[in-house]
Write a protein that binds this DNA or RNA. Structure first.
Lengths: 208, 208
DNA sequence: ACGCAAAATTGCGCGCACGCAAAATTATGC
DNA sequence: GCATAATTTTGCGTGCGCGCAATTTTGCGT
């Protein structure tokens, strides 16, 4: 009963922050305005989110978390773990979720938002680890956490590489490397991890 | 010539911050005091370090970075990449560097310092990636970065697991899991990544 | 030695994150 | 219904991170 209102104000703050940031740009929105738009005190805002950017990013991050876990669990058990995870994660960046693509653009443009989004990727690691254990019953808890964290790290590397290419536009026009599309980069970054993912599935007696 | 003084003030700030934090505890030291101890303005402090904790952690982190890279490069080329990296990283937590062990204890105790130290682990990833490419000439740049980031992620997981066990002491005395010693945890966390590390070494024709 | 351009340091101001305690809101006992 | 206990919200004060512009310091050319 009381939980409902907490989630309500939470989502109100998230949507308000995202909307205002899209309208005026991320740097031209003060915390007081977000709080006022959600009908709460500025102090209350910091009871829900530890930073100004977190409210903007939290929504899309949580959305992505459920999407990956669902994608992992949806794959048939016949496919290898590596392909399963790679496809699930790459799917995150081919099919944009129910959020406007402008949001991702804005996050990519602002350094502060990028950093916060990278931090948010860490949030996804825990549900991912649970999804991994759910799919492979014999998997160690520690192993699952490590693999999930490794996947998150690979995504971070891919994002960094992608941004490196897209932002170097102003000077030396025509000399920029437009950087491979994001899904390809994510797939390439995830590729080196497939041996570890496949080796983790507890089936050592099936190969010979 | 001017570089020298910059590094001098840098190290002065680092050592002053570490010393003061060890003396009074991390929460009882203000930025102004660190700056004053180093003979600079408080504003100048923030030209070198973006946060108060960063100065405390930066020293040990940089130290560790050179230690790992050296350890990786020191292994004979005959050993597999997986064993090389695992031994090098585990060595970081068996042999304490030239810093007092009380520093690591303090970092482990303060949540803010822990978070900053985890961030600092990210700093080590880039030199590690360079060491990997130096050891395996045919290695892709992206692959090296991904593997280094994965190793960093595994270390993060190990640290989190370790702290989980050591802090749950007050209630239910006698029921705590004292948590395996850190080196063992790090080795266990790194184990799932060895297939990926070994597979990355470009020697696909040697196995048959 | 002198002056000049480049770089570093400093002071100032703003916005933000957060601990703390008071006030308001909600759930629970009779 | 009302009193009471438990949460949640809020105001306030403090320290901090950082952009900006003025000031000082450094290195170089002549």
């Amino acid at each position: 009963m009381r939980e409902r209102k907490k989630r309500a104000t939470r989502e109100a703050l998230q949507s308000a922050a995202l909307r205002l940031a899209l309208e005026r740009g991320p740097d031209n929105v003060r915390v007081e305005e977000i709080a006022q738009a959600a009908g709460v005190s500025p102090r209350t805002y910091n009871n829900y989110f530890a930073s100004r950017e977190q409210a903007i990013v939290a929504g899309v991050a949580a959305d992505r978390a459920v999407t990956v876990t669902a994608a992992v669990l949806a794959r048939p058990t016949g496919v290898s773990l590596g392909d399963t995870v790679v496809d699930a994660v790459v799917g995150l960046y081919t099919d944009p979720g129910d959020h406007p693509p402008a949001a991702l653009l804005m996050i990519a443009a602002s350094p502060a938002l990028r950093a916060c989004y990278v931090d948010a990727v860490t949030t996804i690691e825990e549900p991912l680890a649970e999804a991994l254990t759910a799919r492979c019953p014999g998997l160690d808890r520690l192993t699952a956490q490590v693999l999930a964290a490794a996947v998150g790290a690979a995504v971070r590397v891919a994002l960094r590489q992608w941004l490196h290419g897209t932002n170097e536009v102003p000077a030396m026009a025509g000399f920029v490397v437009p950087s491979r599309p994001l899904p390809d980069l994510v797939r390439a970054a995830l590729a080196p991890l497939t041996p570890a993912l496949d080796a983790a599935t507890p089936r050592p007696a099936a190969t010979p």
